[in-house]
Nucleic acid binder design. Structure first.
Length: 193
DNA sequence: ACCCAGGAATTGT
DNA sequence: ACAATTCATGGG
């Protein structure tokens, strides 16, 4: 998608252990409180806040946006980006493994969120994020998670194994395969967008 | 009152 | 190293 990397980081940090309507609400509130007002075709919008703008907010203020425990992680990510400690443009040019290792250093960014950032904003089209829906797809249609009960969460090691296997199986564009799987699962079982 | 949601950090073994 | 617990928040 080549989403803006900073926006992508913030968005997926908000996405941990919640659902899509909730994520949209958080991002909307952040934009209204910390973004810039703009008008296009007579309609008022708010831009997504920069890392610098978010870095100016306190953790308590962010928590008041409905972020819950994620407020601390947004603070950490904003600080890392605003300070230059995390150079996202540089990671665009790095290899998958190196870029992922840098992302995971940030508080609040783990295996899955790192893969989402890599796939959606850092041109790592071979990244294969595994959320609960993808885990179900893999359990139902592939042998990689045979025996696992649906909706059971993956351990760190399982994530590495299964994501690695999928990356090898689907190849250079594994991320596209992941997106088709996700969309398919949501079409069949979802309905709560 | 429970279970779930585009998980990750912390604690326990 | 690996597995269990905790963490906010709202909807079903």
């Amino acid at each position: 998608m080549r989403q803006d990397p900073s926006q992508c980081v913030m968005s997926f940090v908000c996405a941990s252990n919640t659902n899509i309507p909730m994520i949209r609400r958080m991002l909307g509130t952040l934009s209204r409180k910390y973004g810039s007002r703009i008008t296009a075709d007579g309609i008022e919008f708010h831009t997504f806040p920069s890392a610098k703008a978010l870095d100016r907010a306190t953790e308590a203020e962010l928590r008041a946006c409905g972020l819950g425990y994620r407020a601390k992680a947004i603070k950490a990510a904003a600080r890392a980006i605003a300070s230059g400690a995390l150079d996202l443009e540089h990671l665009k040019k790095a290899e998958y493994g190196e870029a992922k290792a840098e992302l995971i250093k940030i508080y609040g960014i783990g295996n899955k969120i790192a893969d989402c950032i890599l796939l959606f904003s850092l041109d790592k089209l071979d990244a294969f994020p595994i959320d609960v829906w993808i885990a179900r797809a893999l359990a139902g249609n592939y042998g990689w998670l045979a025996g696992k009960r649906m909706s059971e969460k993956l351990t760190e090691k399982q994530y590495e194994d299964v994501s690695g296997a999928a990356r090898q199986y689907f190849g250079r564009y594994a991320g596209y395969a992941q997106q088709f799987l996700y969309y398919h699962m949501r079409q069949d079982a979802g309905k709560k967008w």
